[in-house]
């Protein structure tokens, strides 16, 4: 098995890991970095549950090789809360019931986080487009869109 040293910034921390060439980013995150917030859903890039941010852009960790993230910033749902306080987007999902069974939630939050960074006040159709690759099997899409809308508004949550 071919291995190499992987240097990357994971949730704001620089780190160095010995990683096999054939290790997927999701396996690296869950099994090596022990960040199990990122979920494996469909096994084939169809559901979005494994969405993380790579250099600020939402990508699928189940189709990305860990070694291809050398020198990059990778962010998972664990990186959203600061000092034990949930991010505004996470609180919005909590307050607006954007999470039902919760399995798609980390992917939804990371896809929405990527959207809000480039477009802080998206229209609902822009939100739908940005979350288009994320499936909620509980079909709670209305509440998910409301959660993103609430996070983007200036209103108190």
């Amino acid at each position: 098995m071919s291995k190499s040293m992987l240097r990357l910034n994971l949730n704001g921390q620089n780190g160095e890991y010995a990683v096999a060439d054939n290790m997927l980013l999701i396996d690296f995150l869950r099994e090596v970095a022990h960040l199990t917030g990122t979920k494996m859903g469909c096994d084939g890039g169809e559901c979005g549950a494994c969405t993380v941010l790579i250099d600020g852009r939402p990508q699928l960790s189940c189709l990305t090789l860990a070694a291809s993230c050398a020198g990059r910033h990778v962010e998972t749902v664990e990186g959203c809360a600061q000092g034990g306080r949930l991010s505004r987007l996470q609180r919005a999902f909590n307050e607006k019931l954007g999470s039902q069974c919760g399995y798609c939630t980390p992917g939804m939050i990371m896809a929405a986080e990527g959207l809000l960074r480039t477009n802080p006040h998206p229209t609902d159709s822009e939100t739908q487009e940005a979350l288009g690759g994320n499936i909620c099997r509980c079909t709670g899409y209305v509440k998910i869109i409301e959660s993103v809308r609430a996070a983007a508004s200036g209103e108190p949550l």
């Binding site: 890039g45 979005g48 969405t51 990508q59 699928l60 896809a111 288009g132 690759g133 994320n134």
Partner: peptide
Amino acid sequence: VAAPTHRQV
């Protein structure tokens, strides 16, 4: 083509 997460790469 697919979803924005795919089109990103």
